[in-house]
Design a protein around this nucleic acid. Structure first.
Lengths: 329, 329
DNA sequence: GATTTTGTTGTTACCGCTACCAAAAACAGC
DNA sequence: GCTGTTTTTGGTAGCGGTAACAACAAAATC
C-alpha cells in the first residue's frame, strides 16, 4: 500500500480511504489512486486491515458433520447472504462432540471471527464462557434450546415431531413406531422423541419401548429398522422415521418384502428431501425451512455485526414448518 | 499478550515462544507463562500472528454450488486432514460462473489464504494471473484439465464416461443415449460427452444427436430425459445418465411407465450415490474417489505449504475410478 | 477582508504479534 | 579463573493497515 501511495504521490491514508468507501476523497485523488492500484495490481491485505480496525468479515460455522445433505441448504442460505455483504464463511466439523466443538470455537475466536453459527445446541460450559467473554454474536440453529447462548434461528424439533405424530394418530393409526438417529449429544433427536411421546399421550395411545428405536444414518439403517419393527411387533401400523433418509430405506424394504404402504404399514419422514416426493408411494413428511434458517441466521448476525443491533441479543426466531401429506400415510 | 508477559514477569517474546512450539524455553519459564495464560484465559490473536509472520493457516475452497451432495465427501476429506494440521477451511460458491470465481479468488488472496482449492477447471485469464502472482499453491479437483494452473487431484471425467459407455457397448447395447448436466462453463460435462463419443466411435456405433441431451439437476430432470428419449427414439436400448441423480429420476420414470429395466432400456449412472445400490433394480454406476480427492488435495497442499515441497508444483494426481455393474444393465 | 466553517489530506501512533539480532546466562575446556 | 561456545531471554523494528487528530486549503458567513 505504501508503494501505491508513493506512486500516486499521496499518503497511505488517502489510499486507504479510496479503497474503503466512507472517507471523503476528491475525485481527482480517487482516480489517481485507482489507476495506480490497477497498474500494479495491488491487493489490499485484509489481515492487516482487520487487525488494525479490529473488525473482521469472517463468520465461523460449526456443523456436526459436513457430509450431511440436510445442512447444505442452510449453508447455501448463509453463504449467499454473507457473500452479498462481503463476508466470508469458515466451516468446521465437530463430529457430534462438544469437546471438539469447544476446540473449534476456540480456534475461531482466535481467528477473530466476527460471528459464530453453531448447529448443535449442546456446548461445554467452557465454550459458552469463551463465547460470552469474546462478546461476538452467536446463532444456534439446529434446534430451539432451553437456554440459548445468544440468538436462535431454527424450528422446534419437538413441535415438528409432535405434529407429525398427531397427524398419524388423527389418520387413525394406533400403533405408531418411531425411529430417530442416536440421541447421545444430539438434542434434536431427543426433542423429536419427546414430541412423539407428547403426541402419543395426547392421543391416548400407550408408549411401547419395543417400537422406539435409534439407529445410524443411511438407507440401510432405515431398511433394518422397518424390518425389525414389523417382525418384532406385527401389530404396528405406522412408522415415523424422524431422521436423515431412514424413511426411504424403510420404504425400499417394504417394497422388497411386498408390504403395501400404507396398507400394511404407513410411513412418515422428517425432512423434505426431493426423493420423498418422487418415490412410489410418495412419502408424507415435514417441510423444514432449511434454506430460510441459513438466510435468517446470516441476516440477524449481520444486523448485530454491522448495525450493532444490540436489541437483537438473545432473540429467538422460531421458523414454521409444514406438514406434507402424501400417499404413504 | 503483553498482559501475560507482564504478569509472568517475562518478555512478550518468551510468551510467543511458549505458545508456538519451536523456540527453546526453559521448563520453568514455560510453566510460569502457561499458568498465567490459563489464569486470565488468554486467547492469542491469530490475525496478528499471521500478519507478522506472513504465514496463514487458512485454505480457500471454491465450489460451483454448495448444495450439491457430490462435493460433501470431498469437503469432508479436505476438512479432516486440514483440521489435523491446524488449518482452517474457508468455503465459497461460484455458481458455475468464472467471473464470480475470479472475484472470490481475489477475496481469498486478499485474506491471505495459504492455499486454494478450486473445483472448476475453467478460469478467467485474470484469475490465473492473480494466482500465479500470489505464488500460493493451488489444487484443481473437478477434472483433469489440459493446462492446469498448478496441481491437480482428480479423476478423468472423459475416461470415466468412456469406460461406462464401452461397458454398455460390450454388454450388447447398440443405441445408447447420453444425458448430462448443462455443459456451459462445465468442462466436466463436456469431457463426459467426449468420452461417450470416443467410446461410440470405438464401438463402431453411429452418434445420434437426438439421444444426446443436456438438462438440469434433480430427479425430475432425469425422469423427463428418460421419457423424452424413449418416446422420441423408441429404438434406444440404454441410457447413460452422466450427472447428479438423473439416473434415479430416470429409473422412477421407468417404474411409473412400466418399462422394465434393463429389459426395455438399460440404465447407468455416474456417481456412487448410496441410493443407486438400494433401488430396484440397483443401478450400475461409477465409483468415484470423492473422499480421496479431498484427502489427497489437503495432503499435497500441506506438503507445499508446510514443507515447501516445490518439486510438487504442477503435479497431477489422476485417481482411479471403478465401474460397478449392477442389475440395471 | 477577517473569521468561521467545512472538506480534504497528512502525521503519528498503534493493532498484537513475530523476526532478527543483541545481551545475558549457563556451560565447557584448558 | 578466564576465554569460547552454546543456550536462553530480551529489545526493537516492523508486518500492512486504520483511528484519531492535526494541518491546511477552500468555501461560507458577516
Amino acid at each position: 500500500m505504501r508503494d501505491v501511495a508513493v506512486r500516486a504521490g499521496v499518503s497511505t491514508m488517502t489510499v486507504s480511504r479510496v479503497l474503503n468507501g466512507p472517507g471523503k476523497v476528491s475525485e481527482e485523488m480517487r482516480e489517481k489512486v485507482l489507476r495506480v492500484v490497477r497498474e500494479i495490481g495491488y491487493l489490499p491485505n485484509h489481515l492487516a486491515g482487520s487487525l488494525s480496525s479490529s473488525r473482521s468479515t469472517t463468520i465461523g460455522l460449526i456443523v456436526p458433520s459436513i457430509d450431511n445433505s440436510i445442512y447444505t441448504q442452510t449453508v447455501k442460505g448463509l453463504s449467499e447472504v454473507l457473500k452479498r455483504s462481503g463476508f466470508q464463511l469458515m466451516i468446521a466439523e465437530s463430529g457430534y462432540d462438544p469437546n471438539e466443538e469447544e476446540e473449534l470455537i476456540t480456534i475461531f475466536l482466535s481467528q477473530r471471527v466476527s460471528g459464530l453459527v453453531l448447529h448443535s445446541t449442546e456446548h461445554t460450559p467452557q465454550a459458552a464462557e469463551k463465547i460470552r467473554k469474546s462478546g461476538i454474536p452467536v446463532v444456534e440453529n439446529g434446534n430451539i434450546p432451553e437456554e440459548p447462548l445468544d440468538m436462535v434461528v431454527s424450528f422446534s424439533n419437538r413441535e415438528a415431531s409432535y405434529a407429525m405424530t398427531m397427524h398419524l394418530g388423527r389418520l387413525g393409526y394406533r400403533k405408531i413406531a418411531f425411529a430417530s438417529l442416536y440421541s447421545v449429544h444430539n438434542d434434536r433427536s431427543q426433542d423429536r422423541l419427546q414430541g412423539y411421546h407428547a403426541a402419543l399421550n395426547q392421543l391416548g395411545l400407550d408408549p411401547d419401548p419395543r417400537i422406539v428405536l435409534e439407529t445410524e444414518r443411511g438407507l440401510a439403517a432405515g431398511a433394518e429398522v422397518m424390518a425389525r419393527v414389523v417382525q418384532s411387533v406385527p401389530e404396528v401400523d405406522a412408522l415415523f422415521c424422524a431422521g436423515d433418509v431412514l424413511a426411504v430405506g424403510a420404504l425400499f424394504e417394504c417394497q422388497k418384502r411386498g408390504w403395501p404402504v400404507p396398507g400394511r404399514i404407513a410411513l412418515a419422514s422428517f425432512d423434505d428431501v426431493d426423493l420423498l416426493r418422487h418415490v412410489s408411494p410418495s412419502v408424507s413428511t415435514l417441510r423444514l425451512p432449511r434454506y430460510d434458517i441459513g438466510e435468517r441466521t446470516a441476516r440477524i448476525l449481520l444486523s448485530r455485526i454491522i448495525d450493532g443491533a444490540e436489541h437483537l441479543r438473545g432473540s429467538v426466531i422460531d421458523l414454521k414448518f409444514e406438514l406434507i401429506q402424501r400417499e404413504s400415510t
